[in-house]
Computed example of a mutant assay.
Amino acid sequence: CKRKWEEDRDTVIEGLKRLSDYPEYMWFLLYCEGTRFTETKHRVSMEVAVSKGLPPLKYHLLPRTKGFTTAVQCLRGTVAAVYDVTLNFRGNKNPSLLGILYGKKYEADMCVR
């Protein structure tokens, strides 16, 4: 993906269509915020929220919804459920895959809807 929707749309839709008849059970994870939380990204995100008349979020970035709505449209009728999961790492930690592989422990709170 080139992170430009106009260029990536066909690739994303084709990939999702291939998943619609995948022969095994699967979980499809989509990170709607699309990035890690920083104060700068939060400020920019809240400027966008205000410009669109959306309520400000204190601890989250404004979700990026094109990928989610495209996934729902392409996978409609093939998935049993959609879960909204929020994960908050305690102590303002930013886990990394390398840290996890080296056995570093992280504590987190998870909200599942």
Rank of each mutant, 00 (worst) to 15 (best):
M46R: 08
K58G: 00
S51W: 10
V79D: 05
E6Q: 09
K93D: 12
Y102L: 13
E7T: 10
D84G: 02
K93Q: 15
T11R: 15
G15E: 10
M110T: 09
M26C: 14
M26V: 10
V82E: 11
K17H: 09
G15I: 05
P63L: 03
V44I: 14
F37Y: 09
F37K: 05
R113L: 06
V12P: 02
V44K: 13
S20T: 02
T65L: 15
W5R: 11
L75E: 00
S20M: 07
D21W: 10
A71T: 04
Y102V: 09
C32Q: 11
P63K: 02
H60G: 02
F68G: 02
N92P: 01
Y59Q: 02
E6P: 07
A81E: 09
E47K: 14
A81Q: 13
Q73M: 08
C1L: 13
M26W: 14
T78N: 04
V44W: 14
Q73G: 08
E107W: 13
H42P: 03
V79W: 08
G34T: 03
F28R: 04
G34E: 03
G53W: 10
R64D: 01
L101A: 12
G103R: 06
P55I: 00
A80T: 07
L98P: 03
F28M: 06
G99I: 07
K2P: 09
Y59H: 03
R64E: 01
A71W: 03
V72T: 01
T11M: 14
T65W: 15
G103M: 08
G34Q: 01
P95L: 08
N94P: 04
L101M: 15
Y83N: 06
V112R: 07
Y59V: 01
L19V: 01
I13K: 09
P56F: 04
E24P: 05
F89A: 05
A108E: 08
T78K: 07
K52H: 12
K52C: 09
L98W: 15
L54E: 04
V48K: 12
Y25L: 08
R43H: 15
G91I: 04
M46I: 05
G67I: 04
F68S: 06
A71M: 05
P55S: 05
L57G: 00
G77E: 04
T86V: 10
L16Y: 01
Y22H: 04
V44L: 13
G53R: 07
L87V: 15
R76H: 09
